[in-house]
Amino acid sequence: MEKFSILNSQAVPLPAENVDTDQIIPARFLKATTREGFGKNLFCDWRYASDGTPKPDFVLNDTRYSGQILLAGKNFGCGSSREHAAWAIYDAGFRAVISSYFADIFKGNALNNGLLPLQVSEEVLQALINQVQAQPDTKISINLSEQQLHVGAIGLTVSFEIDAYKKECLLHGYDDIDFLVNQKEAIVNYEKNRQWVY
């Protein structure tokens, strides 16, 4: 997993609420057996017409917007557990998604792939969306160790929450698998002492 510490980037606004994982990456693209290459199909059915031409009104096709931050509406990532959703967003070049609410599984998947799901209040999210829509070249800075989000253009600084362990993982590029494999002794002991074994 890649490390994440400081990100200073423009953002792409996608204010729709309840964006589900079938929109992020439709099921027909889940047939790959590797993790790479999902980015080109990110939001496929919103992004392309059925003949494959880009739909001009979709934000990813709007040349005014670019950057490594996706500004997303409430309850982002609901629906299926497919980690392909996080892979697709990451593969398309995003390193953080800012929303006022994330679906649980998506949030976990993002964190396991070095994609920061950054939760802010609805007011802050709205302010960010308004600003970026009005001025697409607005820079948003995210400082993970300080747990701060800063937008110079509107003088906004807010702090955000993140699980302490997950923060360490992101900062150092570790993932849970390293941690868990090192717990083997405790796990084996647990198995021996289980009150009920299936």
Partner: peptide, 20 residues
């Protein structure tokens, strides 16, 4: 509960997950 693929790998490797 449902899990992502990274977690599938974690369970394969340790029969455990980190969960709050």
């Amino acid at each position: 509960f449902g899990i992502g693929t990274s977690q599938v790998a974690q369970v394969m490797a340790s029969q455990c997950l980190l969960q709050s």
